[in-house]
Design a protein around this nucleic acid. Structure first.
Lengths: 339, 339
DNA sequence: GGTCACTGAGCAAACCTTTTCCTAGGTGAC
DNA sequence: GTCACCTAGGAAAAGGTTTGCTCAGTGACC
C-alpha cells in the first residue's frame, strides 16, 4: 500500500504531485497557489497548469492543522429548528457561504447537557466562530467556555450586554403597525397578543401603548389582552374585545396566528374586514398571512436579514474587528387586504 | 512566538504536553488514549490523569489528516430548508450526533450551480458521507462526482435505483386513511389533492383508488380532484364535490391545508363534521391539524424517522455495509375529532 | 572588476497525532 | 546458566501544507 510518490494514480493528487509535474519544489507550488511569494509569472503558470491537469484540491485538514483556521462556524439552535430559527439559519448560511465558510449544525433541543456536549465538539473542531439562535426573543445566558471563539447571538440576545447580539426591532414593528393604522384613520385599537411571560409579547405591547400615548390615544379596551400565540385565543379574544368595546375599529395582534383567529371570528359574526375593523398581524408567516381571509396586513420581522447580519458580524469579529453590543434589525410593513 | 515545549501555557495542551507530564513518550500517550497497544495499567492511569490535569483535547485536524476520516457528513437540502426538510434534518442530526459525527449544512436553494459548488466544498472537506434531501417526493437525478463518498437520498429518492434512498411510504399512508374511513362506516369517499404533476399527489391518489377498488368501491365523484396544496383549493373543491355527489360522507385530502380548507367550507355551509362527513388530512402538520375546526385526523409521515433512517443507513454504508435501494418508512394514523 | 542589492526558488521546520517497527529488560523453561 | 520469548514503552515516519530562511544567480553601480 506504499504510495507511489509522484503518481497520483492511487487516490487524489497532492501538492507534491503538482510540484513534480511542474518541475518545482513543494514550497514553490504552495506559494504559486496562495499568491504569496515572488516568482516568475511563467513558473506560476506552470504550477497552475499542473493543478489543472491533476485536478488538485488542497487537503483542508493539512491546511487547518497548519494555520489553525478551520473555515467553519458552528450554528447552535437552542430550541429545535423551527419556524423562527430556519430563516435565520438560511440567512447566516448564505452570508457565510459567500465567505467560503461552512456551517456545522448543532441542535440542542433546549437541553443544557446537549448544549455543553455540542459546544465541546465545536471547540474540538476549532470552529472559527459560533452563532447561537433561539426561537424566543427573551435574553439567554451566554455560552460558557468559549472565551477564545467569537460568538454572535441571533434572535435571542445574550444577557451579557458586551456580547454580540442581533435581534428583531420590536419597537419598529409596533411603530409600523400603529402608524399604519392611524394613517388609515383608525383610533380605537385593540392589542391581542401572546403570554405576558414572553418578552416578545411584553415588548410589542409596551411599545404599542407608548406609541398610542404619544398620539394622545389609548387602547380600545384600556388594556392589553395577553393570552396564547394561537388562533383559538385570537377568536376568543376578538369576541371579548367587542363585548367590552364594541366601537373598536382595529386589531393589532402579537402574531399572525392570533390575527387569523381574530379575522375568522369577525368574518363569522358578519363584521366587515377591513370595512369596519382593520387587522394587523405580526411575523408575516406566509402560510398564515396568505391563507387568512382576507389576506393579512402584517409586520415582517425579516429573520433572514437577522441571520445575515449575525453572520456578517461574526465574520468581522473573526477578522478581529468585533462590534460588541446589541444590534436591532428593523421590521417591514407588508400591506395586504385586512387594512 | 516559539512554543515553550512542555508548557501548555500559551494555547491548549497537546499530546506532547500530556506525555511529558505523565513521563512517557508521545507514542505511548497516544496508545493510552486510544486503548490500543499494551501497557501497564498504572502507566495508562498516569496518562489519563495528565489528560485530565491539562484538559487535553486531541486536535481533530491532526487526527483527520492521519486517518483520512473527518467524522463529518454533509447535509444538502435542495429546496431550501422548509417544513419538510426540517424534521428530516433533525432526525438525521440526532442519529449522527449519537455517532460522534457532525453535520455540515448546505442549502442549494434548488440551484444546480450552487449544488455543484457545495458539493466541491464537501469533497474538499473529505466528508465521510452525504445526505441529500428535498421537499418533493419526486425522484431527483443523483449527485455527480461523489463516486467515493456514500450518499443517501432522503424524502426525494434518486432516479438511480441502486442508490440508497429513504422515502415516505405513500401506500401505507393511503391505506391507513382509507381503512380508517371504512372502519368508521364511510363508503362514499372523495379525494382532493395537490397538482397532478407532483408525485406525492399522483401516488396517494393511485393507492387510494386501488384500495377502494379492492373493497369494491369507487371514489364518490368518480374521479380524483387534483388542484393545489392550499386551503383555498380545499374550500373550492369541497363545494364542487358536494355539488356533484351530495351523498359524499368522507373527504380524504392530499395534505392538511386542503383538509382544513374543506373543513372550513363544510362548517360554513352548516355541514356537521364528523357527524355527516368525515375528513382525513395528510402530513400531520400540527399548525394546521390542531388549528383546524374540528382538529384533524391525519396521516403522520414521520419525517423525523425518515431522517433517522437515512442517517443510520449512511452510517452503515460508511462502515462499508451499504444497503442499496429504496427504503420506505411507514406512516402513522393520528386520530382526532374530524372522523 | 568588485561589491551590493535584489529576485527567484528551494530547504526544512512546524503543525499534531497515529502507527509501525524496534529495543531493552525481564521471566520462565530446560 | 543459557536461550527463547514476551512485554512495556520508545523512536521515527507518515499524513499534506505553509512559511521563514537561505542560497544562488543576475544586474547595476562605483
Amino acid at each position: 500500500m506504499t504510495a507511489v510518490s509522484g503518481s497520483p494514480a492511487n487516490g487524489r493528487a497532492k501538492l507534491a504531485d503538482v510540484a513534480k509535474l511542474a518541475g518545482v519544489s513543494v514550497g514553490t507550488a504552495s506559494k504559486a497557489l496562495s499568491g504569496s511569494g515572488r516568482m516568475r509569472p511563467e513558473t506560476r503558470q506552470r504550477v497552475l497548469a499542473a493543478v489543472e491537469a491533476l485536478d488538485f484540491r488542497p487537503n483542508q485538514y493539512a491546511q487547518s492543522l497548519h494555520t489553525g483556521r478551520s473555515w467553519t462556524v458552528g450554528l447552535m439552535t437552542t430550541d429545535g429548528i423551527g419556524r423562527f430559527s430556519t430563516p435565520v439559519l438560511l440567512g447566516a448560511e448564505d452570508a457565510l457561504g459567500a465567505g467560503k465558510i461552512s456551517v456545522l449544525l448543532c441542535d440542542t433541543r433546549g437541553d443544557a447537557i446537549r448544549e455543553q456536549h455540542h459546544l465541546r465538539n465545536l471547540m474540538d473542531r476549532r470552529v472559527d466562530g459560533i452563532i447561537v439562535t433561539g426561537r424566543r426573543t427573551d435574553p439567554r445566558p451566554p455560552l460558557t467556555g468559549v472565551e477564545r471563539v467569537p460568538t454572535v447571538y441571533a434572535l435571542s440576545p445574550s444577557t451579557d450586554p458586551d456580547d454580540m447580539s442581533v435581534v428583531s426591532d420590536d419597537h419598529s414593528g409596533a411603530q409600523l403597525a400603529v402608524e399604519h393604522l392611524l394613517a388609515t384613520g383608525r383610533t380605537r385599537i385593540a392589542h391581542v397578543t401572546g403570554p405576558a411571560h414572553h418578552a416578545a409579547a411584553r415588548d410589542r405591547a409596551r411599545h404599542t401603548v407608548d406609541l398610542l400615548e404619544r398620539n394622545s390615544l389609548e387602547l380600545a379596551t384600556g388594556r392589553v389582552h395577553f393570552g396564547e400565540w394561537s388562533e383559538a385565543w385570537g377568536r376568543r379574544a376578538a369576541e371579548a374585545v367587542l363585548r367590552t368595546a364594541p366601537d373598536t375599529d382595529a386589531f393589532f395582534c402579537g402574531n399572525d396566528q392570533i390575527a387569523r383567529g381574530v379575522a375568522d371570528a369577525l368574518r363569522e359574526n358578519g363584521t366587515d374586514v377591513p370595512g369596519r375593523i382593520a387587522i394587523v398581524g405580526y411575523d408575516n408567516w406566509d402560510i398564515m398571512a396568505l391563507a387568512c381571509r382576507p389576506p393579512l396586513t402584517t409586520i415582517d420581522t425579516d429573520l433572514t436579514e437577522i441571520g445575515r447580519q449575525a453572520a456578517l458580524r461574526l465574520l468581522s469579529a473573526i477578522g478581529s474587528e468585533p462590534h460588541p453590543g446589541l444590534h436591532a434589525v428593523p421590521c417591514r410593513l407588508v400591506v395586504r387586504e385586512s387594512t
